[in-house]
């Protein structure tokens, strides 16, 4: 099996794929990127926090016109994962307004973005409808 690496640092592949945020130890605010201090309370201490892998679609758009190289149409969504907002694409769903709806239940899934010259696969995340 080729080596696999997560597409972004905040995606953790093992033991099961999930997102990890830097959580402020003072106020609990969560950030996917690194911060010098908490944007909410200015605290400087952070710990890792696993994000729920199921959530609801709080907002979405179906992008039909994008920068060159981006396959369209695709669904971009804001997912409420048990109180933490996550941005991601929706997958395994037809990208039209009849199949995507506000409030729909979704769950985290992963896919292979591609492999580089060394054969290393980058694994990305997306959300798919939860039955």
């Amino acid at each position: 099996m080729p080596e696999q690496i997560p597409f972004v640092e905040y995606l953790q592949l093992a033991p099961t794929p999930h997102l990890v945020a830097h959580q402020c130890t003072s106020c609990g605010a969560r950030f996917f990127d690194r911060r010098n201090a908490c944007a909410s309370c200015f605290g400087t201490s952070f710990e890792d926090a696993s994000i729920a892998t199921e959530g609801t679609v709080r907002s979405f758009t179906i992008v039909s016109f994008a920068a060159p190289g981006i396959p369209v149409p695709f669904v971009s969504a804001i997912i409420d994962c048990d109180g933490t907002s996550v941005r991601g694409n929706l997958t395994n769903v037809t990208a039209d307004p009849e199949h995507v709806s506000l409030g729909m239940k979704v769950r985290l899934t992963t896919y292979t973005v591609g492999a580089d010259e060394a054969g290393t696969e980058a694994i990305g995340f997306a959300f798919e409808p939860a039955a």
Partner: peptide
């Protein structure tokens, strides 16, 4: 975010029409 390649289109959208579409749809929701 320590991304190994561009995130636009892979982790949501960076385009202005898309971002503001989501702003309106969030209100609708």
């Amino acid at each position: 975010y320590g991304a190994v390649a561009a995130t636009d289109g892979r982790i949501g959208t960076d385009t202005m029409p898309g971002v503001f579409a989501q702003v309106g749809m969030e209100y609708a929701h």
